[in-house]
């Protein structure tokens, strides 16, 4: 029924292509860049860069690794659960309490990084690669809608949600999230209208 791979973790063996190794390397480099002391401190210093630069580097790095691994094995059925797991892991680290906790303690910050790479990024990359067009479209539209809701919440809340950041930074984050939501919507719509998601040619 499914294509059972002969070598499940081919990328850890010699049969892995050079390109795949390079992609895993780039993913690891993104993760390292987000966590190395000079950049990490700068990124965590402001709310917008913390959530919209460091988080994407960690999740994106993990996703590159996950997507590369997914090429070695066809497992369509894992796509919805992997994408859900990745989304939930991202949302957990967007809870203000845990953002504060990550800034207050080294151990929690390490857990945050590990979680965003392994439980958010890798499943997202894996799941996206395994997913078909319907699931991808569903995830994309939901992500755009959630970005918009989160942006609106940040702008509408009159009190500080994080003890570690100023109210003005919360506003900046709200605006940035709304802009991202609009970009995601435009990207999704252009793909739907001009891309390859039309009715298949019989």
């Amino acid at each position: 029924m499914y294509l059972i791979p002969k070598i499940p973790m081919a990328c850890l063996t010699r049969s892995c292509s050079l390109k795949a190794k390079a992609r895993i390397g780039v993913g690891a480099a993104l993760v390292a860049a987000a966590l190395l002391p000079p950049l990490a401190g700068l990124l965590e210093g402001r709310l917008v860069t913390h959530l919209l630069c460091q988080y994407p580097l960690l999740v994106g790095g993990g996703a590159m690794i996950g997507a590369t691994l997914a090429l070695t094995r066809f497992a369509n059925w894992t796509a919805p659960s992997a994408l859900l797991a990745g989304a939930l892991a991202c949302v957990f680290w967007l809870i203000p309490r845990w953002i504060d906790a990550a800034l207050a303690g080294q151990a929690v910050n390490a857990a945050k990084a590990a979680c965003l790479v392994i439980l958010a990024g890798m499943p997202l990359g894996w799941g996206w690669t395994q997913a078909g067009p319907v699931l991808r479209g569903f995830v994309w539209v939901n992500a755009a809608a959630m970005l918009a809701v989160m942006g609106w919440l940040q702008l509408a809340t009159p009190i500080r949600l994080c003890n570690s950041y100023l109210l003005s930074e919360q506003r900046d984050l709200g605006l940035a999230l709304l802009m991202l939501a609009i970009l995601a919507l435009i990207a999704g719509m252009s793909r739907a209208m001009f891309g390859r998601w039309g009715r298949p040619i019989q």
């Binding site: 894992t78 859900l84 939930l88 957990f92 809870i95 203000p96």
Partner: peptide
């Protein structure tokens, strides 16, 4: 696929319950 998704959703809900004191503490 559905089964795995339900399991993940259940684990996720439990984690959020734990991480927010049962939905009572979203902020520090």
């Amino acid at each position: 696929a559905a089964l795995a998704t339900v399991v993940v959703a259940g684990l996720g809900a439990a984690t959020f319950w734990w991480g927010t004191e049962g939905g009572m503490a979203l902020t520090s």
